[in-house]
Simulated scan of single mutants.
Amino acid sequence: MSITHTFGLRVRHFRKSKGISQEELADICGLHRTYIGSVERGERNITLKNAELIAQALDEPLAAFFLGTDNEH
């Protein structure tokens, strides 16, 4: 699994566990909803700056987004 795919799965996992939509996450981060969707699908090789924005918006340490688990789909 690629790092972009792992990161995207973790974004989706944390976002859903907090009960917020892609649009809400995008608003909190100051990013576009379609950008968040493409991150979650592992289609984007995002910058560390945007990765940090997403992690902060989800109140999770950035390192947690790179430690995927096999049961997150």
Rank of each mutant, 00 (worst) to 15 (best):
V39E: 01
I54K: 06
L25C: 04
I36G: 01
S17I: 01
N45V: 07
M1R: 13
Q56H: 03
L58C: 08
T6C: 10
N50R: 06
Q22S: 08
A55Q: 00
S38I: 08
N50K: 08
V39M: 05
I20P: 00
N45I: 03
V11H: 03
D59Q: 15
A63S: 14
E72Q: 05
V39G: 02
G37I: 04
P61E: 15
L67S: 10
L53A: 10
A63H: 14
L67C: 02
R12P: 00
H32G: 14
D70F: 13
T4V: 07
A51F: 05
K16I: 10
T6M: 04
E23C: 00
A63N: 13
H13S: 11
T4Y: 09
P61T: 06
R41Q: 15
V39R: 01
T69A: 07
H73D: 09
T6D: 09
H73V: 11
F7S: 00
L58V: 09
I36T: 04
H73G: 11
A51K: 09
L25H: 06
E24T: 07
F7T: 00
D27F: 03
L67F: 01
G68M: 14
A55Y: 01
F66N: 03
A51R: 02
D70V: 13
G42D: 07
R41T: 12
E60F: 05
F7W: 04
G42I: 10
C29E: 14
S38E: 15
L9T: 03
H32C: 13
T34H: 09
G8H: 06
F65W: 09
A26S: 12
R33H: 05
K18E: 08
I20V: 08
D59I: 04
I46M: 12
F65E: 02
T4L: 08
E72M: 02
I46P: 00
V39S: 00
L9F: 03
G68F: 08
L25V: 08
E60G: 02
G19Q: 06
D70C: 06
I54L: 00
G8W: 03
H5A: 15
N50L: 06
E24L: 11
D70I: 15
T47Y: 02
E60K: 11
L25Y: 04
G8K: 01
A51M: 10
E72I: 11
A26M: 07
F65D: 02
A64L: 14
L53S: 14
F65C: 01
